[in-house]
Nucleic acid binder design. Structure first.
Lengths: 238, 238
DNA sequence: ACAATAGTGTCTATTAGACATTATCGA
DNA sequence: TCGATAATGTCTAATAGACACTATTGT
């Protein structure tokens, strides 16, 4: 075995798929690749990300958190490692490894860097397994994997709660589930399940409305909870 | 942003947690670190792994497969990416990133490299969240994460089937589940669930025995299936 | 016949899902 | 009073779990 000092080292990056619900639709934050000579995929849309800085980033998660904070200003989103991709071909500049994270956050907390630069991050609605725009590198694959993980987990976890503001109603929560799942769920079963899972608690406040006011809830725990079953219409098993 | 060519690149490795059932116990394959000057953790137990070879390893999974094949001779185990860990401190030689995989295989397929070298791989029984021996680097953390993922998934997937030989009885399968879960499961419910999940099929053969012979089954699909519910004793929800 | 394991049947508590009904607000 | 949404109640089909029972082999 060669010594590590003489091994040819792959490039290492971190990319982040940042999701939020905007206008009742699941959206993902994208940036534009720089349009300079020598840069691959110039002007193309891509997931936010970049090289790991071995001096700044104490860990992979810290690196993902840094990139997320740089683009959105948000400091404490839900952040989960999705997986890593590595090959000689995914980047024309050579063998690269990317560690991909996905984040869920409430869009109201985001202050986008609207410096007017063309690279400025932009929300794009999710359409099927990705977005309408063509993405740089293998980012379409990464985004599809993130969406698959998200939709899969939403069936049996409290993840959509992290797309909501601090306090929310059960109807808000149900709407978040329905947006991500892209289908309606039964109200009664939904409420029973959410309350049984015991991860939210009433704030004591109500939300005023032109109709009957709804009780407001907040998260009891910052970590997602798992439900013992998946959502499934009657009769389906799996 | 610095150019990639001038960026300080972290070292990139792949480690594999390889599990099998031996003597009715879950065991993991470990190697010894070389006992040379300059090597960190000399003579210490560790997960099999090593540097990514940008010329040999077309992808991360190919790299994991290569390391697994080198240690066990097995070519088609169940292999799943667990996650990646990276920091400046996990290896005294500098900032490293490791992509960790876990593999499930049938111990009978394995031909260990018994060259007599002290680095030769050895099966060690899983004990709680790890093994009795102290592990090099942060491998105790990696192994604990692999065990947690495995045990978690066993509650709602067909993963234990990959620990069995080509053909097996339902009792074999149940035993594999019970070994990994470290608890008994009800026979009737277990059989109903396995057959309903429709991922195994009878081979048409029976296994002769001193008692009533059992029907043999084989996997219908190479990929694991998900059950709509977790195993759970009556009344528990979660 | 017996021991031992394979495989099935029965019963019940639980609960998801479907949907109807009631509650509470502003206008 | 009415419209709209919040919240709860009722009914039923499905099923997991517990456990008893039957089936099939070698000795």
């Amino acid at each position: 075995m060669k010594m590590p000092q003489t091994m040819e080292r792959p490039l290492a990056t971190v990319d982040v798929a940042i999701f939020a619900i905007i206008d009742n639709a699941l959206q993902v934050l994208l940036v534009r690749r720089p349009d300079c000579a020598g840069e691959p995929f110039p002007g193309c849309w891509a997931l936010p990300g970049g090289y790991i800085d071995v001096h700044k980033d104490a860990s992979l998660e810290a690196c993902a958190m840094r990139k997320l904070r740089e683009k959105t200003g948000v400091r404490s989103p839900y952040l989960e490692q999705l997986g890593s991709w590595g090959s000689a071909k995914r980047d024309p500049r050579g063998y690269t490894i990317t560690c991909v994270y996905f984040a869920l956050l409430n869009a109201e907390l985001v202050t986008l860097d609207h410096s007017g630069k063309v690279e400025a991050p932009t929300w794009q609605p999710v359409d099927g397994d990705g977005v309408r725009e063509r993405l740089a590198f293998d980012h379409a694959t990464l985004l599809a994997a993130a969406l698959q993980r998200l939709r899969n987990k939403v069936e049996y976890t409290s993840l959509p709660a992290f797309l909501l503001p601090e306090s929310f109603t059960l109807s808000d929560l149900q709407s978040a589930y329905e947006t991500v799942l892209n289908r309606a769920v039964d109200k009664s079963a939904f409420r029973t399940r959410m309350l049984a899972a015991d991860f939210i608690e009433p704030t004591g406040e109500q939300r005023a409305s032109v109709t009957r006011p709804a009780l407001l809830y907040r998260l009891k725990v910052r970590t997602p909870v798992l439900f013992p079953r998946t959502f499934s219409p009657r009769g389906e098993t799996g």
